[in-house]
Nucleic acid binder design. Structure first.
Lengths: 108, 108
DNA sequence: TTTGTGTATTGACGAACGTCGATATGATGT
DNA sequence: ACATCATATCGACGTTCGTCAATACACAAA
């Protein structure tokens, strides 16, 4: 029986951080939040999300926390309200994560 | 007490499919597989993955299935071996999913 | 200080996920 | 036919995830 093929070199790149970043956005409601922040192009009050999304307030807060910990959004409290904003480099970091995966090998 | 802000319009776009696509790639080993397919720029035998990844064969097969069902890779059996290839539109579909989220609203 | 309002955190629950051993499938060689 | 090898599927297990009720926290107004 012949060998299957010239053996391919499996990439040994660090995909952990890219996977973590992508996991943070791999949820429909978190994508909705990000899209809202991008579409409005300004900070958005948490109450707008709790009003519009079919989720209870703690769940909205949970999704916002995940985006915050991934540093895809920033937030600022003013009085009773908290305003979320898209991190300036959020689209760039996500694009870079994908680009890092799909870039073809630079042959020596 | 004043209102928090001019109410922001929460995006009502369909984020389900984008989230499903992103979820398919939000795993370090699946990213490694995709990066390997991209770097080699040709089909890769399953055995190369089972050899190189610190996973048992059924687990590798499981990850390949998820990528296959997301139509990010295609596969072809030749004899005993099965060869996986990056779907031509895989990077494009992922970039488009992100772009769909971050595009600013086109104001009427 | 007390009362009320908006947001965050905690704890619990079911569902989905990643992993693996066992087994099935599909193809090759004897 | 039978044995062998590569890959896929199945079933079970522990872990992580999304969700919510209850509660805590932060701030504002009275």
């Amino acid at each position: 029986m012949q060998r299957c093929c010239p053996p391919a070199k499996v990439v040994r790149r660090d995909c952990e951080s890219a996977a973590a970043l992508l996991k943070a956005v791999a949820d429909p409601y978190r994508l909705t939040i990000l899209a809202t922040l991008a579409a409005n192009d300004r900070e958005v009050c948490v109450c707008d999300f709790t009003d519009a999304l079919p989720l209870n307030q703690p769940t909205v807060s949970h999704h916002l926390r995940i985006l915050r910990e991934a540093e895809l959004v920033t937030c600022e409290r003013r009085g009773t309200w908290v305003y979320y904003q898209l991190a300036a480099d959020a689209p760039g970091r996500l694009n870079a994560a994908l680009a890092g995966i799909f870039r073809k090998k630079v042959h020596a």
